[in-house]
Amino acid sequence: MTDLQFIFQRYPGAKRDALIPILQEVQDVQGYLSRDSVIAVGQYLGLPASKVYGVATFYNQFRFQPLGRYNIQVCRGTACHVKGSLGVLESLKRSLGIDAGQTTRDGLFSIEVVACLGACGLAPVLCINGEFHGNLKPESLGKLLSTLRKEAAANA
């Protein structure tokens, strides 16, 4: 039984109101919503793919690419904003050549924008795979990324 069939069987006779919980479960299991999954969920619920994709893109929580090996959560909460998190985010996007919600082509990094990580004392702050990096400046990102690249190469 595939991941999707396993999820669907727990929603017998489901209608459109089950769409979001099902999408959440699919993402939990697969890490993201693939094209095939979006279509399959639509077929199961009798919804057009355009509708499923429309709903899924409305919510920040859904992603359409697998997470990178390092998922970088950028805090855009109030304190971080005041301390310059926008510059950090922009610099990060430029360095990696991707937008928030996307993953680099080598699969190493993904960027996720989050509202508040609850570490305002360290603002502006990033969280990479559960590890916090605080008091950042746009200039300090290069060093951080190259450390991670080296770490990844060492553990390839």
Binding site: R35, P48, S50, K51, Y53, G54, F58
Partner: peptide, 16 residues
């Protein structure tokens, strides 16, 4: 077609 995305980035288009 349906709405894709949210807020000022909303657009109308086919799935994906």
């Amino acid at each position: 077609i349906d709405f894709i995305g949210r807020g000022s980035k909303t657009r109308v288009g086919p799935a994906f």
